[in-house]
Amino acid sequence: MVETTKLIHEYLRHSKKFPHVYCPGCGHGIVLGSIIRSVHHLGLSKDEVVLIAGIGCSGRMAVYVDFNTIHTTHGRALTFATGVKLANPKLKVIVVMGDGDALSIGGNHFIHAARRNIGVTALVLNNNIYGMTGGQSSSTTPENSYSTTTPYGHLERDFDVVNLALGCGANFVSRTTALHAQLMDKLLTKAIENPGFNVVEVLTPCFTQYGRKNKFKNVVEMYSWYRKNTIKVEKYKELPEEKRAGKIPIGVFSDKQEPGFEEKYGQLREKLRSKK
C-alpha cells in the first residue's frame, strides 16, 4: 500500500498550516492517515463523512481534514455524534477521542453509546495520559507509572478499553497500535462500514508527556515497546495463562452486525406509519 501520501494530501485542508501541531513521533498523525485511507478505500465522499472529535490532542485532528468536522466539548463527542447519526442516518460518523475524553470525563457516554448501539465509529486514541493539559494521569494510565499528578507512582488501576466495550455490548470491538498501520486501516475500514457501535482502540505513544516520565529514551523506543509487547489476539488466545502476562492482544475481539439504534428507530417509524 504505497503511494498513499499524495492521496492523504488531497483530503487535508489546504488552508491549514502543516506540519500539524502534534509532537514528533506522535501516533495521532498516523491515525489521521489511516482514517483518510479507510474513507477513500470505502469510496465515501467527503460530504457524507462527519468527523467528530472531543477535547485534547485528539480533538485537534478534526480541524485538519476536509470532512464535515465538529470539535466538541471534553468527553461529549459521542453525544453530538448520537444526535447527528439519529438526525441523518445516511452520514458516516467517525468519533475521535482520547483516553481521558472517552473513558474519564466521557465514560458514561461511552458505555451508553455502546449499549444503545448507535451507528458510529468510536476511535479511542489511547496514549495513557492527558497530553494537551500537560501530562496528568488518566483512566488508562497504568498502575505504578508516573505523571504530573502521580509523581510518586499511580495507585489506581487502569481501564481496559476493549473489555469495557465488550461488556457494554458494542458490535465491533478491536485494538491496534500506531505501529500497526495496516491493521489499523483494516479495522477502521471494517468499523466505518459495520452497523451499530464500533470501537477501535489505538495505542499511540505520547513521548512528551508519558514516555519521558516513564523511562523511555525516545519515541522510537515506545514504538519498539509496542512491537515487542503486542500479540495478535488469535495467538494470544492460544497462549497458556502464565505466558499472557504483560502481553497486549491486538486485532478483532467482537464482530457483530446487529442493527444500529438509528436503524431500529427507523423501523419503529415505519411500523407506526403502516398502522395508520
Binding site: E3, T5, H20, G33
Partner: peptide
Amino acid sequence: CELHCPDFAISVVA
C-alpha cells in the same frame, strides 16, 4: 515509512 510517517512527509512511488 509512508504509512507510519505521522506528518505525511514521506512519499513512496514506483
